[in-house]
Simulated assay, not measured.
Amino acid sequence: MALEPPSPLVGASAALAEFLRELREKSGKTYDDLAKELNWSRSSIGNHLSGTVPTMDVVLNWSRPPPQSASSRR
Rank of each mutant, 00 (worst) to 15 (best):
D32Y: 09
R73I: 07
R73A: 14
P65E: 14
S27T: 04
S27F: 08
R74I: 12
M56C: 05
E25M: 14
G51R: 03
I45D: 07
L16Q: 02
W62R: 09
A17I: 01
G51W: 08
S72Y: 00
V59K: 05
T30D: 15
V53P: 11
R21G: 15
G28P: 10
L60F: 08
A12V: 13
N47Q: 03
L9W: 04
T30Y: 15
F19V: 07
P66Y: 13
S50M: 11
V10R: 13
V10Y: 13
G11L: 01
N61Q: 13
T55P: 09
S27I: 10
S41N: 09
V53T: 13
S41D: 12
S50Q: 14
M56Q: 10
L38G: 05
K36T: 03
R64M: 06
G11E: 08
N47Y: 14
L3V: 08
S50F: 05
E18Y: 04
S72E: 12
E37K: 15
L23K: 08
E25S: 15
S41C: 10
A70Y: 03
E18P: 02
P65I: 05
A14T: 06
S69G: 15
D32T: 11
S50P: 00
S13P: 13
S71Q: 08
N61L: 01
P54D: 06
G46A: 02
L34R: 05
R73L: 12
S50Y: 07
D57W: 04
P8M: 09
E18D: 14
T55Q: 07
